[in-house]
Simulated scan of single mutants.
Amino acid sequence: MSSHDQYVESADGTRLALRRLGAGDPVVLVHGSGGGLHSWATVADQLAHDHEVWLPARRGYGPSDVPPGPKSFTDETADLLAVIEAAGQPTGRTVHVVGASYGATVALHTASADPRGIRSLAIFEPPLFAAGAEVAPLLVRYRSAFERDDAAAMAAALNDVTRVPAEIVAALAASAGTRTPDPAEARRAAIGWLHDLEALAGDSTDITRWSAITVPTLLLAGADTWEPMPTTMTTLARTLPAARYTVWAGQSHFVTMTAPTLVADALRRFFVEASTA
């Protein structure tokens, strides 16, 4: 599937890189922490058969701009609204917004702030438990490790943010074997993580604030994802009682990589339902 790369300017002048592919109703896929233009690639390739798919790199993640100073979810919301406007402009259609992990938190903030351009919202496992005072000391730890370029210490701080169980961390390390990440890519992800942690440290763990969201919403989760994500998702489902809620057996927080067809099919079905509701 051929793609087209372009830039969109956010309200404060930050340039956001975008990859666009396919044709049809517009879909914006918002990536999680450590990601970028590539994050949703396998899901996007499948959705692009019948949708126009927009893949932004969030601010802080090259080739998008990395503005100086700490980032907030106010910045993220302005950015996503700029992308939604660009995606809807050619046809005047409203946009299906899909977020994974931290990108799902961005999508919730945006739908709460200004839902006018959003046709539907699909939310996969936002880390709503990782915010505020709890994250602040982890941000300090991470920033110190980042400034020393200490990859192991950065990873340890992030594991305390995401609460990935030690056995899963070990299994991921074993599956990577002797492969080492490209240094430029590792640095790009590390910079992005730093700014995401800034936004998380300035945010709240209050899930009830999302109760005002009224656009058609699909909540998605993996049955094998570790706590406190299952409890977080259950609380979010109670907060958004009109939302559909799908839990995939045998899947975890990595489902967009391990089972992209499962994800794409669920999204495609939901887009049809949301468009006819």
Rank of each mutant, 00 (worst) to 15 (best):
V28H: 07
A122S: 15
T256E: 01
K71I: 00
R188G: 06
H4G: 00
A171Y: 01
V215Y: 13
R58F: 02
P165V: 08
P137S: 06
T77P: 12
L21T: 10
V8T: 13
S275L: 05
S211N: 11
P183R: 07
T180Q: 15
D65K: 07
D5R: 15
R209A: 13
H96T: 04
V27A: 12
L29N: 07
S204Q: 06
L219T: 04
H4N: 09
E273P: 01
W40Q: 07
V161Q: 00
G103C: 12
H49W: 10
E185R: 13
A199R: 00
V247L: 05
A145V: 01
F146A: 09
A212W: 00
I123T: 06
A166H: 08
Q6D: 13
F254A: 14
L197M: 04
A133D: 12
W226K: 07
M1G: 14
F129G: 02
E85F: 00
W54K: 10
G92P: 09
V95S: 08
A131S: 12
D75M: 09
G69F: 09
Q89M: 05
H109C: 09
P26Q: 14
I118T: 02
P70I: 01
E9W: 05
G192M: 07
E52F: 04
A155D: 15
V169Q: 08
A57T: 06
L18E: 07
L47I: 06
F73K: 03
H195Y: 13
K71Y: 14
D203L: 03
F73P: 02
P228W: 09
P165T: 04
I118S: 02
A41M: 08
T239I: 07
V30T: 15
G222L: 04
R116L: 08
A277E: 11
V8N: 13
P115Q: 12
P181I: 09
W248H: 15
V27D: 10
A57M: 02
W210D: 07
L29G: 12
E185I: 08
A186K: 13
V169E: 08
L121S: 08
R58S: 02
L218D: 07
A131V: 08
S39E: 14
G34L: 10
K71L: 14
A173Y: 01
R244P: 00
S10G: 07
G192W: 06
M233Y: 09
R141P: 00
P137V: 10
A186W: 06
H96S: 12
A17G: 04
A41W: 05
P67S: 05
A266H: 10
S72N: 03
A130Q: 03
S72P: 01
V247T: 12
D79C: 02
H195C: 00
D12W: 13
G13L: 14
V255L: 15
P115T: 10
Q46T: 11
G222H: 04
S112V: 02
V66R: 15
L138W: 07
V140T: 14
R238L: 11
A156I: 03
D265S: 14
G202F: 03
S120Y: 12
Q46C: 05
A11T: 15
P126S: 11
Y142A: 08
S10C: 03
A133Y: 03
S120W: 11
P56V: 06
E198Y: 00
D150S: 03
L16G: 04
V215W: 11
W210K: 11
I123Y: 05
L236N: 06
E76P: 01
L81T: 06
